[in-house]
Amino acid sequence: MKLKLKIWRQKNSNDKGKIVSYDIENISPDMSFLEMMDVLNEQLTSDGVDPVAFDHDCREGICGSCSMFINGEAHGPDRLVTTCQLHMRKFKDGDTIHIEPFRANSFPVIKDLVVDRSSFDRIQHAGGYISINTSGNTQDANAIPIEKNSADKAFDAATCIGCGACVATCKNSSAMLFVSAKVSQFSLLPQGKVEANDRVLNMVKQMDEEGFGNCTNTGACEVECPKGISLENIARMNRDFLKAKISS
């Protein structure tokens, strides 16, 4: 395949940045999108040009590192996949592909396609955990009976890899899908219910402080989420938040 790539290039967080065009040839349809980027970077390096910086790690769709906005969509045109699992067969020979970083004030660009998603870490630190005394008297989790429906929903929520596609794709840069998944994965389970009120209040407070936009229920986040996290989690977080506010 022969492609024209229009890629966002930005030297650092202070640089204004711009779209730069590159022509690339001999791309196999079986390559992953990141492999195509590797080929481009080889080409740029051999030409003495600074390679395009982009996040990647596992390349198996489970780490949440890769974060490109491809042809106007987070993780590109395919559904339920991260950029590393997107394959070039989704494009046609001669296509022009626009590649930009995930954009939100809360995800500032570090370089080229690499953005700082530490705002997600700070939200997690605000309450995305269960406090357990590990001094030797911890109860075996398997000894606690859990209704299957709740266990399934908690597990579904826990599949969120925190990639930030929800924020990137939302027209309001809202982080509600991410935060609601992290709240739900605990609040549905008996171990998580103990701290449920504080958790939802603190995580939502941190989310608001990070400057994410407000959710307007467009549903774009659910469509673009590589793990198919459901909007049901947002509804659950809304009612958990209201309950916690009233009872606190």
């Binding site: 229009k6 966002w8 779209i19 906005f69 042809n71 106007g72 969509e73 045109p77 626009h98 930009e100 954009r103 939100a104 004030n105 809360s106 794709t169 027209k171 309001n172 840069s173 809202s174 400057g211 994410f212 936009g213 407000n214 307007t216 229920n217 467009t218 549903g219 774009a220 469509v223 673009e224």
Partner: peptide, 22 residues
């Protein structure tokens, strides 16, 4: 909401994942 993304995308395909109404 508009202020939460000061630098806009060059290419943004909103119609691919959400209705015009929303």
């Amino acid at each position: 909401n508009r202020s939460s993304r000061k630098i806009k995308y060059v290419k943004y395909k909103g119609s691919s994942n959400a209705s015009w109404m929303s």
